[in-house]
Each structure stands twice: as structure tokens, then as C-alpha cells.
Design a protein around this nucleic acid. Structure first.
Ligand SMILES: [Mn+2]
Ligand SMILES: [Mn+2]
Ligand SMILES: [Zn+2]
Ligand SMILES: [Zn+2]
Lengths: 121, 121
DNA sequence: ATGGAAATGATAATCATTTTCATTTGTGGT
DNA sequence: ACCACAAATGAAAATGATTATCATTTCCAT
């Protein structure tokens, strides 16, 4: 495994919201940064692995990345326009713990996403 | 636009759960059905359009389809041995609806998985 | 300086999905 | 039956993101 190239993270920060690997790459090129597409992919994957960035998918399937808040949260995503709301999951946390306990599981993590149509769509 | 080939829907029903276009296609071939991959894609898209089928994406980006309204469940998976328990998610259902309402989302679906170590591992 | 490990990036390979387009099939009128 | 025309079909090629290879470069500890 490789470590994340700091310039990739810096570019993603500057990008503001979500950006795909291809977009981050093009951005860096426009700004004169010398970097390979492969390294951009590797760095973003590494950042996701370290839970420093979130990854989701556009409707067309392209993966998009964005800086993640430091606390654990879940997502409410619009299927149509991609608008994303980070939501709290107190109920989910309890549910996950209860289910794990009930079936004798330990060291559990969980994933939970809600998707639908936002008010604008 | 084209209409959905009924054999595709029938196959997706028989698959029971999620299945990708490629999987539906292979399933039909194995069962001796004569159909083209293109028609499978077109039919699934049409079914999604008509809200007869839900579509979401696997981690690897492949689109997976399932019948709408099919009573879904969630999974508790052991990271070590792979043992899987199907669990109820009443708390999750409520949480998803509440979050959606709070943020003005409609027609929402959700995914939720719990993973950890089972009692044997 | 030197050797090995890690990082890099150009290139090729993968693979799901979409596009083309020629052919087949269905339908309705005569 | 015959014809005209629209819809459906599917083989083949194109697309495009992501991943795998692998030779080269950069780091780093000794
Ligand atoms: Mn997030
Ligand atoms: Mn549920
Ligand atoms: Zn929206
Ligand atoms: Zn186990």
C-alpha cells in the first residue's frame, strides 16, 4: 500500500465540495502540478481508507470524493442531483450495538446510507 | 424508449434480492433463454424508470437492481469467517423515514450493514 | 555513497455500460 | 395475404472510469 500524496488532499480541499479522481487530476494539471493520474487514484483511495475523505457515487457510477468531518456520520443523498446531507445516527448506533449484542458479535462497525429525491428534484 | 422485456423482470424476481445486469444476463443464458445483453440493460432501465425496480450501486460501482417493495432486510456479517445473519431493522426504517422527512427528501430507500466478529471468531 | 524499499507515472488491460445500426418482429390497414 | 411502418432486438464497436503492470525515480537508513 502507498501513502497519500499531500498535494492531492490539498487540491481536494481547494475544490470545495465533491470531486472525482478525474476532476482532481485535471485541476492539478491546470494549476501546473506535475502528477500522474495513477497517483491521484492511489492517494484518494488511501485517504478513504484512513477515513479522511468520504466517497460516494454519482448516478453515472463515477466515484466522487470529499473531505469528511471528523465525527462518525451517515449520508442522505439525492439520487437525482447528488445533493448530500450529513446526518446524525444516534438511532443507528444503538441499533447496531443492540443487534451485535443480540447475536454475540463484537468489534462491530456499520454502514448506513439513505437515498431518495431532495425537495428541489 | 422501449418497453421492458417481461422475461427480464421474471428473472430478477427469481433471483430474489439484488442482481446486476450482467448477472441477470448470465442467469438467463444458463437457463437457456435467448436474449441479448443490450435488451437486459434496456429492460432494467425501463423498470427503474417505471419505479418497479430499485437501483443502487455496489462498492465497485456496478449497478444492482431489485424489485421495489420486496421486504428487505439487513445483514450482520462476520469479517473473519463470513457468517451472515439476516436481521430486522425496524429502528432503521423509522430513522430513515425521520431523517428524510426532516430534510424534505421523498421516495427514499436505504442500505445498512453491520460487520464485526462473530462469537466463534 | 550504497542498497533496498517505497513512490511514481506512462502504458496497457479490464470491464461495465452505452451507442450504432442492421435485422427481425409485431401491428394495423387494405 | 400483402404491404407499410414502427417498435424491439442484439451483435459489434465505442466509451470511459478504474485497475494492473512494470520500469524508473525518489527516499532513507546504514
Ligand atoms: Mn461524510
Ligand atoms: Mn431496512
Ligand atoms: Zn436533488
Ligand atoms: Zn466469524
Amino acid at each position: 500500500m502507498s501513502r497519500s500524496n499531500p498535494r492531492v488532499l490539498s487540491t481536494l480541499e481547494r475544490a470545495g465540495g465533491f470531486a472525482s479522481a478525474q476532476e482532481v487530476y485535471k485541476l492539478m494539471q491546470r494549476e501546473g502540478e506535475k502528477i500522474g493520474l495513477t497517483t491521484v487514484y492511489r492517494s484518494l483511495q488511501s485517504l478513504v481508507n484512513d477515513k479522511i475523505v468520504d466517497v460516494l457515487r454519482r448516478d453515472d457510477g463515477e466515484a466522487i470524493y470529499r473531505l469528511c468531518g471528523e465525527n462518525h456520520h451517515h449520508h442522505l443523498v439525492c439520487k437525482s442531483c447528488g445533493e448530500t446531507v450529513e446526518i446524525e445516527g444516534v438511532a443507528i448506533e444503538k441499533w447496531a450495538k443492540a443487534m451485535a449484542a443480540e447475536h454475540g458479535f463484537r468489534d462491530v462497525g456499520h454502514t448506513a446510507e439513505i437515498f431518495g429525491l431532495c425537495s428541489k428534484c
